[in-house]
Design a protein around this nucleic acid. Structure first.
Length: 260
DNA sequence: ATGGCTTTGGTACAAAGA
């Protein structure tokens, strides 16, 4: 079973690109971030025609996450628990029942946090605290569980072409990286670093200043697996070529293959 | 470079993104 995550940067602008990618790669599950659409306007029919069940958690203008799955999506939960005042649509979670048992997965769009010194950075760290608390509960269930999405965190210097350019950025702050490590240290396996030792593995290239042409990228989209999910992992990959397509998102898909 | 592009909302630019 192939399960992928992709920040598509607007479903309305990206629909043709996303459909091309689905037809070409045929993931069993796809987690999308930044759909930038309310639920009513999400083009669910186009995805249903490709055989996907669709669940969304959107809002007007920005943010928003969506789940596509060839298997039925069960026990869908919208929103990250822990703060009833948080109105930003950044988390959706569901379960699929496979021949090899149930797999639960969360699709997340972690706050960017820029600029530093504002409530946006505080919100990022608070959101990460809530993600850690939620993940701790899920891990206690000791079942296959994945957290996939745009984490907006550059974990280590090797995850940026030019790490020095990110010293004053929320994505590479010590607090952001520390919270990401705290999440990992609960017991998750981070897919890509466990599938390859290669350097210059990125998932985002800015639209500006020829970042793609210079391979001036960062690795901020991640797949985390519970021990029970990691035991099922057969492989992983990054669909880098998609960044070179017409009308690309600034992010590319990241996927894992599970024996489920 | 103060985001150098891109998307959205709404129909002129402002906000947001990373």
């Amino acid at each position: 079973m192939k399960i992928a995550t992709w920040n598509i940067n607007g479903v309305k602008a990206r629909i043709d690109t996303v459909l091309d990618w689905l037809k070409e790669t045929s993931p069993d599950i796809a987690c999308f971030q930044e759909i930038k659409s309310v639920d009513e306007n999400f083009p669910r029919q186009a995805f249903e025609e490709l055989g996907y069940n669709v669940e969304t958690h959107g809002q007007k203008g920005f943010n928003g996450v969506a789940l596509l799955s060839k298997l039925p999506l069960e026990d869908v939960q919208r929103g990250l628990p822990g703060n009833d005042d948080d109105e930003q649509a950044r988390f959706i979670e569901a379960t699929v029942s496979t021949n090899n048992g149930a797999v639960r997965f969360g699709c997340l769009y972690l706050p960017n946090g820029n600029p530093l010194g504002t409530e946006k950075f505080t919100y990022k760290l608070e959101w990460m605290d809530r993600l850690i608390a939620h993940a701790e509960k899920r891990l206690a269930e000791e079942t296959p569980f994945l957290l996939l999405g745009d984490y907006n965190v550059i974990p280590d210097p090797v995850d940026a072409k030019n790490p020095e350019n990110w010293f004053d950025d929320a994505l590479f702050q010590p607090e952001s990286r520390q919270n990401f490590r705290a999440l990992l240290n609960l017991g998750f396996t981070e897919a890509v670093r466990n599938c390859t030792q290669a350097e210059e593995i990125f998932t985002f290239w800015d639209y500006q200043a020829g970042a793609w042409q210079k391979n001036n990228g960062i690795r901020i989209d991640h797949v985390l697996l519970s021990p029970q999910a990691a035991d099922l992992m057969n492989g992983c990959g990054i669909d880098k070529r998609v960044r070179g397509w017409d009308k690309p998102s600034d992010h590319v898909p990241v996927w894992v293959d599970l024996a489920a």
